[in-house]
Design a protein around this nucleic acid. Structure first.
Length: 203
DNA sequence: ACTGCGATGTCCT
DNA sequence: GGACATCGCAGTT
């Protein structure tokens, strides 16, 4: 079944200017869209985490601007993509005003369209639930790498489309995954009961 | 089911 | 030289 890409409405720039915690929650239920080799890859965002330069020692920008994290200090509505563990990429949506580093890590999406291409990008052994459950898996399934660092979300190649505004009772709030400082901050959000979340039982 | 660990580039001290 | 916003595999219970 086909997804009506042409009917999807891009989120406007002011969506990303909002406080990062609010935006991390609001991004749940929205659609990440990426055109890859002429095909549309679409995923419903089901899991996010917020990072902020202030009072968050796990944020890459906590100690100020560097070559690596400079995109986080740029205007909102852009992708901050970083490389880690020698093999993985992770992707964030830059939020809040320019010169303030705040971003939402996209941790998992539910595949909606372009599933065959995602399976090709991820490899043959992975089922639907493992295609994009995890920040590096998501990047691999959507062909996101260093070339996409700094890309804006207002063109035709990569954008986020409006979807459901998830009610608060459908959103689970927990601590973040895979960090070793500021572990107590409840800045991870996911859709309750969703099968495509990376690790539903934490927190 | 759970646990441990290797891979391996880039940034930061 | 150490750490890292991870993942997948192998071994064990």
């Amino acid at each position: 079944m086909d997804f009506a890409i042409e009917k999807m409405e891009k989120l406007p720039a002011d969506f990303y200017y909002q406080p990062v915690l609010k935006t991390a929650k609001r991004l749940l239920g929205k659609y990440f869209v990426r055109r890859y080799n002429g095909k549309y890859l679409v995923g419903k965002i089901v899991e996010t985490e917020a990072y902020h330069q202030d009072n968050d020692s796990s944020c890459h920008a906590h100690r100020g601007k560097t070559k690596r994290n400079e995109v986080m200090f740029g205007p909102p509505g852009h992708l901050y993509v970083y490389f880690t563990y020698g093999m993985h990429y992770c992707s964030n949506v830059v939020c809040e005003e320019e010169n303030r580093a705040a971003a939402v890590l996209l941790r998992a999406v539910e595949p909606v369209a372009g599933v065959e291409m995602m399976q090709h990008l991820r490899g043959p052994k992975f089922g639907l639930k493992q295609l994009a459950a995890g920040p590096a898996r998501f990047c691999q399934a959507f062909g996101i790498g260093k070339a996409e660092n700094g890309a804006d979300l207002f063109g035709e190649e990569i954008f986020i489309a409006a979807g459901r505004d998830e009610p608060s009772e459908e959103i689970v709030t927990t601590t973040r995954i895979g960090i070793s400082s500021a572990v107590e901050l409840p800045w991870r959000f996911y859709l309750k009961g969703n099968e495509f979340v990376s690790k539903p039982n934490r927190g």
